[in-house]
Amino acid sequence: MHKELADYELMLKDAKFKVTKKRLRMIELFMEDERYLSAKEIQEMMNKEYPGISYDTIYRNLHTLKDINVLEQTTFSGEMQYKISCTDHHHHHFICESCGETRVVQYCPVQTWENELDGVKINSHKVELYGLCEACR
């Protein structure tokens, strides 16, 4: 279950950031699109409503939203990509390298890896699988 826009507003306030129309619209864009998006894609979308919005403004806001866990970040196709954070349960993602579609992978291999790596304790991890979805194959 995803958060509502009001929940994200609260996250901004709790982190002592201004709640602006632009920031809320950026969050809405991510809520509407369940895939990773680049800063360039977000700038193109935002430019329709806020003509002339700078790439720097977009980039700074993406980092702010990532830092307060509104967004999660990955790198593929040689650039940083962002999507709305999935914080309701632990899982991983399959990401289509062509269209950017993202699917949840529920299985987590960490316990197997800890058993295989005798004596270690894994504190954190991120697993992402890359390939092509059915439509892009």
Rank of each mutant, 00 (worst) to 15 (best):
K22I: 09
N123Q: 12
S98P: 02
A6Q: 14
L24W: 00
N61V: 03
V19E: 14
K21C: 10
G131V: 08
E4R: 13
A15V: 07
K121M: 08
E134M: 04
M80T: 06
R23E: 00
Q106A: 07
V104L: 07
I27V: 15
L24Y: 00
I27P: 05
K3M: 14
Y50K: 05
R60M: 12
Y59Q: 14
K83I: 01
T64L: 15
F94S: 05
M1H: 11
S54K: 04
K40H: 11
E9H: 07
L129D: 03
H125M: 06
E41C: 04
H91S: 15
L5N: 01
C99P: 11
G100S: 01
F76V: 05
L29N: 13
S124E: 12
P109D: 01
C136Q: 11
D56I: 10
M1S: 14
L62W: 03
E49I: 03
C133W: 09
E101K: 10
T20R: 06
E114N: 13
K48Y: 05
N69Y: 08
I53E: 01
C96Q: 08
A39S: 14
L5K: 13
N69S: 10
L62P: 02
C96P: 01
L12D: 03
T112N: 09
K48V: 14
D56C: 01
T64F: 01
G119W: 05
F30R: 07
I53D: 00
G52R: 06
L37S: 07
Q111N: 08
V127W: 01
R35W: 05
K3D: 08
S98T: 13
N123T: 13
V19Q: 10
E41M: 08
V110H: 00
T75P: 10
N47H: 13
P51E: 03
